[in-house]
């Protein structure tokens, strides 16, 4: 059982770290988030492997952990206040990345699920445990804050 779990971790670890990075905005929190979600997946491995997609399970766990379990630590945004800027081909992208880091977690998560994970709003709603209307309103507010026009909105 554990052997196949370890294989999953090895095969998918880097992709999950990338997902964690866009969710959290920094390497340290990304690593924590991935480790925590994988530890939980590992404990539920036999059940999840039979019934669900381990990848879906761990990604859903990551976003829920990020929004809910860490929410109480209300000084949590300090790290996001000094995001790792990294190298962007376009200078404007670095600005946008920095502004993403200043969004509330739930709002940012909605954008990551929609524009990085490319999920439809009803799936995002299911993952976050909110209504589709809430997803749409959160996304609209987030895009507004980032001064992004809604060209792709109709496709949702």
């Amino acid at each position: 059982m554990d052997q196949s779990f370890d294989e999953f971790v090895r095969a998918r670890g880097d992709a999950l770290l990338r997902y964690g990075y866009v969710l959290t905005g920094n390497t340290e929190d990304a690593a924590d988030l991935v480790q925590e979600a994988l530890a939980r997946l590992g404990n539920a491995w036999s059940r999840v492997r039979k019934k669900d997609s381990p990848e879906g399970y761990v990604r859903t766990t990551m976003v829920r952990l990020h929004i809910n379990a860490w929410r109480r630590r209300h000084r949590e945004d300090l790290v996001a206040a000094v995001p790792e800027r990294g190298d962007f081909d376009r200078y404007d992208d670095a600005d946008l990345w920095a502004e993403l880091g200043r969004l509330p977690r739930r709002m940012r998560a909605v954008l990551v699920l929609r524009y990085y994970e490319d999920l439809p709003d009803d799936e995002i709603a299911e993952i976050l445990g909110v209504s589709r209307g809430t997803v749409r309103s959160q996304a609209a507010r987030a895009l507004g804050k980032l001064r992004i026009t809604h060209a792709l909105e109709e496709a949702r």
């Binding site: 770290l17 997902y19 993403l100 524009y115 990085y116 992004i148 026009t149 060209a151």
Partner: peptide, 18 residues
């Protein structure tokens, strides 16, 4: 104004920094 493509590109580029 920015576009949603800008957002998609930014997120993908940032992911590469992980």
């Amino acid at each position: 104004m920015r576009s949603e493509e800008d957002l998609i590109r930014t997120l993908r580029t940032a992911a590469g920094h992980a």
